[in-house]
Amino acid sequence: MLSIGLNHYLLLSAFLFATGACGVFINHKNITAMLLSVELMLVSVSLNLVAFSCFHNDLTGQVFAVFILVAAVAEAVVGIAVFIIYFLNHKSIEAENMSGLKG
């Protein structure tokens, strides 16, 4: 119990991921909260990778964690820009009203 192994980190990461996933649905009207949940999921994935990297003594995991963080930043920045533009156009960013893709 007291010695921390790989499994502990994996469990924590799985929990963070699941929290992020259910956050997308719980906050399904608030688009910013969705973005935050996605960030949460990305962090949990990089935690997962780093944990594997350390316990397997292999740097590749950390390298890819770096890449994930870069991708997360790029994605979030573009997302924020889209929200702002959307807000300027529609005066609200409620996800309920966003159904332009409706078939």
């Binding site: 799985a14 929990f15 991921f17 699941a18 996933a21 259910c22 956050g23 649905f25 719980i26």
Partner: peptide, 10 residues
Amino acid sequence: FGVTVGLLLF
């Protein structure tokens, strides 16, 4: 519903 999904995934 969200919590269910989360628990399932976890």
